[in-house]
Simulated scan of single mutants.
Amino acid sequence: MLFWLSDFADAVPLFNVFRYITFRTGGAVVTAMLFVFLFGPTIIRALRVRQGRGQPIREDGPQGHLLTKKGTPTMGGLMILAGLIFSVLLWADLSSPLVWTVLAVTVGFGAIGFYDDFLKVTKQSHMGLSGKARLAIEATIAGAAVFVIAQVSVPELSNQLTFPFFKDLLINLGWFFILFGAVVIVGAGNAVNLTDGLDGLAIVPVMIAAATFGLIAYLAGNAIFSDYLQIHFTPGTGELAVLCGAVIGASLGFLWFNAPPAQIFMGDTGSLALGGMLGTIAVATKHEIVLAIVGGLFVLEAMSVIIQVTSYKLTGKRVFRMAPIHHHFEQLGWTEPQVVIRFWIIAFVLALAGLSTLKLR
């Protein structure tokens, strides 16, 4: 919205600052953070009253959780989404189809997560929306988003798969790119969802990944920087840096209330939305494989569940003491803060590895 003020820069030179993505990204960070700070307590009180007993805690999980986390409200993702959307509408260029596409996926996945959380809270059960129905809806939203991204991308890149470390290696996936992109988005959403199991565990890696992809989006969307780094120029993606800034700001505000002991949990409402958003930005910027590096922590969490389930079904034996893998380390005797902070460190190192792909070509 404020971007339109740049049209009056000739009359008011000060308005020229709204042309700059970096300025608006900074504004998005601050706006989203302040929004969550200001309205967070009200949202938490309302959710606590409406939810009563709060999020149901796994009885087969770490026993300490039954004591320390029982009664904590969930759906804290509503705080993040509210701050994010308000900030994006205020600071982003709303004429960008990519902005609206990423927002649509974020809100769509958030709505799925909200309904899932609602069922769990009202039934006081872990059985929310059925897995097949949830994946089907997510795939439909993601597939539609990838189709739009392919249509608005430059023709030479629209259906291409790019590879880190190689400046000229491209594979034309054709219509299969829609399926591939949908898998990336759905996978990212559910991987972040699986990571969200301890206070603050998922939100900081999300911020790290958002900061990384905000930089990637800015560089890939700039003809000069992309040429210098020899990465593929993707016009229009620079505006997605504003969305990443809004994620960082809203997540910082949420972390204030989610820090141990958490006053509120993010729930599927937030984790699905943020993961889907990161996946969509990765597809738009042609850095899908880099997402697997930057979000390697999320991949590890998801793989631990897949390995555990597969092993148990085939052999009747478990590979980990408990899945996702953060619970495995809890069972080994790590305290919750140890697990969380060490996983943050891993996420930061993986983000640096992902950024290194921009220059090592």
Rank of each mutant, 00 (worst) to 15 (best):
H287W: 11
P324Y: 15
L240T: 11
R321S: 08
V299N: 01
L297G: 10
L272G: 13
L291R: 07
G316R: 11
L252T: 00
E330I: 10
L297T: 07
I289S: 03
A259Q: 09
A241L: 06
I306Q: 05
G279E: 07
T310H: 01
E336K: 05
Y312N: 08
F343W: 12
F348T: 07
T285P: 12
Q331A: 14
G279C: 03
L255Y: 12
V349F: 15
P324M: 11
I341C: 00
I264K: 14
F320Q: 12
Q308W: 07
L252A: 11
I345H: 04
E336H: 05
I248S: 08
G279K: 06
I325Q: 14
G249H: 09
A259T: 12
M322N: 06
I248A: 10
A273G: 03
A262C: 05
R342L: 08
E301M: 14
Q308A: 04
A246M: 10
S271N: 04
I293W: 09
A273Q: 06
I345M: 15
V247T: 13
T269D: 03
L252I: 13
G279A: 04
T315D: 01
D268E: 15
E239K: 06
E301N: 09
P260D: 06
N258V: 01
I325N: 07
G275A: 08
I264W: 10
H328Q: 13
M303G: 00
A302D: 04
E301F: 06
D268K: 05
T285R: 13
W334D: 01
G238D: 09
F329M: 08
G267R: 06
Q263H: 15
L272S: 07
M277W: 04
G267E: 10
A262F: 14
V294H: 06
R318G: 11
F298Y: 15
V294R: 13
S251D: 01
R318T: 12
V242A: 08
W334A: 01
S304F: 12
F320E: 10
I307C: 03
V349P: 02
L300R: 08
V299D: 02
V340A: 10
S311P: 02
V283F: 11
Q331S: 09
K317T: 14
E336A: 03
Y312P: 01
L291K: 06
S271H: 02
G245M: 08
G249S: 13
L278F: 03
P337S: 14
F257M: 03
F329K: 08
T280A: 14
G245V: 07
A323K: 08
I293T: 10
H328I: 10
K286H: 15
T237E: 05
L291P: 03
T310C: 05
G270S: 13
V294T: 12
S271G: 11
V294N: 10
G267F: 00
V319W: 15
I307D: 02
I293L: 15
F265G: 10
A282S: 15
L243P: 04
G333M: 12
L332W: 13
G267M: 13
V305M: 00
L291Q: 07
V294W: 13
I307V: 15
I346V: 15
A302N: 00
T335M: 06
A241F: 13
L332C: 14
T315C: 06
L255H: 05
A273C: 01
G270E: 01
I346Y: 09
W344R: 02
Q338Y: 01
V339R: 06
G275N: 07
F298C: 09
W256G: 00
L314P: 03
V242P: 12
L272N: 09
D268V: 04
I341R: 13
I307R: 01
F257H: 11
A347I: 09
